[in-house]
Simulated scan of single mutants.
Amino acid sequence: MIWLTWRQFRFQATVTLTILAAATIYVMTTGLRMHHAYAADIAACPHPEIGCRFFLSFQGSYNAEQRLLEMLVFAAPALIGIFWGAPLIAAELERGSHRMLWNQSVTPTRWLAVKLAILALAALLTAAVLSLLLTWWASPLDQRSNDRFAAMTFGTRGVTPLGYAAFAFALGTVLGLLIRRTLPAMAVTLAVFIALQIVFAAVLRPNLLPSTAATMPINATTMSQVQGIGTGPDPSGPVQIFRPGKADAWILSATNLENSSGHEISGNQVSTCLNNQSLDLTGIGDCLAPYNLHIDYTYQPADNYWPLQWLETGFYLALAALLGGACFWRIRRHRD
């Protein structure tokens, strides 16, 4: 069975190994250069905790490479589900070769067990290698951006890609068994996988752990910790604070600028402070302090990053296990 699995899987394995080899060479070549540049420039920065002008140009110069690698890691589980999972059983049913395979000395359940074990392990290893490469490569950028909870960043670092890969593979296998046609199973696998990714990131992930509520008074100290303040295109509109609180926290929601009575204020009411070009954020905070303003916001603390990673990965692995169990249940009752 192992030999048969390899014979049937060798094309996908060759393509995967080629992509992994190319990705490793690219990541190591560009990553070593980037890490060296980062170490040299941060050593020349007198206050790295505050930041230097170098960091903005540094991040911008690697934006294209970062997006490319993130898309590769993000797409890998979907491709595994499409090209590994969906054809696994659907191709046999479509060709009719299952009539011969499942009437030999190897039972259908044993046939499925060997196939699932080998390919699921290969899927996990593929996702692990890609995630490890990107996590190492992007570490200087992630360290300065303090945006580990962003959807694309969170889903392409750490252990979450392993959960995605296992789930996508099991999903494709189940859909192939049910639909019995390879191409439709591939299309449905992609649609379901993308839909669940969107729903999980937008609805489930923010609620996996209880969030923390906080109130931030507006003064020079608190304004020095935010990324910006503005009213948008309409100066008479509400005033927004961008990324309040600790820089490495995940901000889930935030109110606009409010007075002590809890009512929103407009940009025109504090235009003297906002339109003063000579003031930085600290100066704007000092200017706004007499108005007794504040915002309310909710967030996930930075310490929740790894618990959220493990919880999400566990969720997808549990779904993969359930789908694998459904495959065994269905194949035992297969009559054809």
Rank of each mutant, 00 (worst) to 15 (best):
W3M: 12
R7D: 10
R10M: 07
R10H: 13
T14H: 05
T16L: 10
T16I: 10
L20Y: 08
A23Q: 10
T30I: 10
L32V: 11
L32R: 13
Y38D: 02
D41K: 11
I42T: 15
C52Q: 06
F54T: 09
F55W: 11
L56G: 13
L56A: 15
F58A: 06
F58Y: 14
Q59P: 00
G60R: 09
S61A: 15
S61E: 12
S61T: 07
Q66R: 13
L68Y: 12
L68A: 15
E70W: 06
V73K: 03
P77Q: 00
L79S: 01
G81N: 07
A90Y: 03
A91M: 11
G96L: 05
W102K: 02
Q104M: 10
Q104G: 15
Q104R: 10
S105H: 12
V106F: 00
T107H: 02
P108M: 02
R110M: 09
R110W: 08
L116C: 01
A117Y: 00
I118W: 08
A120H: 11
A127C: 06
L132I: 11
L134G: 04
T135D: 12
W137E: 05
P140F: 06
P140M: 05
L141V: 08
Q143L: 12
A150Q: 14
M152Q: 09
L162H: 00
Y164H: 14
V174T: 11
L175K: 03
L177K: 01
R180G: 02
T182D: 04
A185W: 03
V188N: 05
A191Y: 04
V192I: 15
I194W: 06
A195R: 06
L196C: 10
L196P: 01
F200D: 14
F200Q: 11
A202F: 11
A202R: 12
L204A: 11
P206T: 10
N207C: 01
L208Q: 07
P210H: 03
A213E: 15
I218V: 15
N219A: 03
N219H: 03
T222D: 04
M223R: 02
S224L: 06
Q227G: 13
I229D: 04
P233A: 10
D234N: 15
S236I: 01
G237K: 07
V239H: 05
Q240V: 08
I241N: 04
G245A: 08
A247R: 15
D248W: 05
W250Y: 14
S253P: 05
S253H: 12
S253F: 05
E258V: 11
N259Y: 05
S266T: 15
V270S: 03
S271L: 09
T272S: 14
C273Y: 04
C273T: 02
L279F: 11
L281G: 05
L281K: 05
T282M: 08
G285T: 04
C287R: 02
C287L: 01
I295T: 05
I295Q: 04
D296M: 09
T298L: 00
Y299W: 03
A302S: 15
N304R: 10
Y305C: 00
Y316I: 01
A318R: 00
L319K: 02
A320W: 00
L323Y: 03
A326H: 07
C327S: 10
W329R: 11
R333W: 03
H334I: 07
